[in-house]
Computed example of a mutant assay.
Amino acid sequence: MINQTIKNAIKENSHEMIEIRRKLHSEPELSWEEYETSQFVYDYLIKLGIKARKMEPTGVIAELEGGKKGKTVALRADMDALSVEELNTDLTYKSKELGKMHACGHDVHTAMLLAAAKALDSVKEEIPGNVRFIFQPAEEVATGAKAMVKQGAVDGVDNVFGIHIWSQGATSTVACSPGPAFASADIFNVRFKGQGGHGAMPQACIDTAVIASSFVMNIQSIVSRTVDPMQSAVVTIGKMVVGTRFNIIAENAEIEGTVRCFDPAIRDHIEKQLQVYANHTAAIYGGTAEVDYIRGTQAVINETESAHLVQQVASEAFGEDSVYKEEPTMGGEDFSFYLDEVPGSFALVGSGNAKKDTQWAHHHGKFNVDEDSMVTGAELYAQYAWSFLTK
């Protein structure tokens, strides 16, 4: 199943891959602003002789046509950075952009997929089918994948595969289990309206500080008392803005939070409960409530056969000990929108190494990766495509 030419090509080009990663890391671009990154990706692919096209406004799709007829497999990497200040000030390739950095590893994903494309190009005459490379913008705001799908990213595709580098896993280990991997990730906004006034005269007011505080406490029972204990769900309040001054009773309050779960029915239930709790809590105190519920990513559910193929490929390419089981995470990942269209799977490649200080959580200012993991990720991309098309 494992193609030795691909394995050798990845190793031979590992220095170039790391150089590309470091270049991208030093030049981060936020969601929907990946103009230089996408241009670099496009130019690199064209130089290899792989057909590529730019998407609107910043995505890139390329197609490697094999020497024989067959199916089409898609490989996806995301490209956007985050609004995070880099704290790794001693890095030679630290971010040049104040307040921006690749704090989630998308620079790594892009470099690994380019290396995989180059390796697969070296065996294209032997490939029975086509490999599509999807370089996606705006994963961090959960809108990039949906936009790429609308522009035909998976039209005619039989299977799709993605990778996320994972600082919580040991370097070069691989996790990909059938079933739930990442949760759906939604955003809600609640606005309470009361009646402001002097802090010394509460009897003439409707205090939204009290309403908002009560709401935050009340919704703790949504998961603990209205969701089956055998199901997983999280409701988190991340932002609360109330009032303007110490001696003024607040007329307005605004709350923002997120909902994470794996079951669509639980998702619907929590959305409804948030509306009920907001309206009833406000009514108790004489105020009103408005709730906006914004659905973000779907849950990432790995298709069984695809996940088993990832495990088999990883085991043969890197050894049985490289494969481990990672429990589903409540993190969100818009790769889910590809899986809504075609079967596939999403793997985690470990990059955590305390000796190299790469164990920091994703989205932290000190996040970094053990670059030894990149050879594993690039080969996993390429060998998965080869194995899917030739099995």
Rank of each mutant, 00 (worst) to 15 (best):
N218L: 14
G238A: 09
I206D: 01
V276Y: 13
V259D: 06
G257L: 00
I248H: 05
S232K: 14
K272V: 13
G197W: 03
Q220C: 01
V276Q: 11
G243V: 01
G286E: 05
S224W: 10
Q220M: 04
I249V: 07
A209F: 02
R225D: 08
H198G: 01
A265Q: 15
T236S: 06
V227W: 05
V291W: 11
G197M: 02
A233G: 06
Q195H: 13
A289M: 08
A204M: 14
N218S: 15
V234Y: 06
M230E: 14
A278N: 08
V291S: 07
A209W: 01
V227A: 09
I270W: 06
I249P: 01
H269R: 13
V235M: 09
Q273G: 09
R191N: 15
A265T: 14
T236D: 00
G196A: 00
A204I: 13
R245P: 02
T226P: 03
I270Q: 08
E254Y: 04
R245V: 06
E290W: 12
G199C: 00
V291G: 12
A289T: 08
V210W: 00
A250N: 05
A265F: 14
E254A: 02
T281L: 08
K239A: 12
P229H: 10
H198D: 04
R191M: 15
A253V: 07
R225G: 06
G197V: 00
A278T: 03
G287C: 05
V259P: 07
T288G: 02
I270L: 11
V291T: 11
I206M: 02
S232M: 13
I219T: 00
G238Y: 01
R225C: 07
K239F: 06
I249A: 03
A253I: 04
T281V: 13
V210N: 02
A289K: 04
A265I: 14
I211L: 10
N252K: 10
D207M: 00
M201I: 15
I270H: 09
Q220E: 03
V227C: 10
I248Y: 06
G238K: 07
G286Q: 02
R225Y: 07
V259F: 11
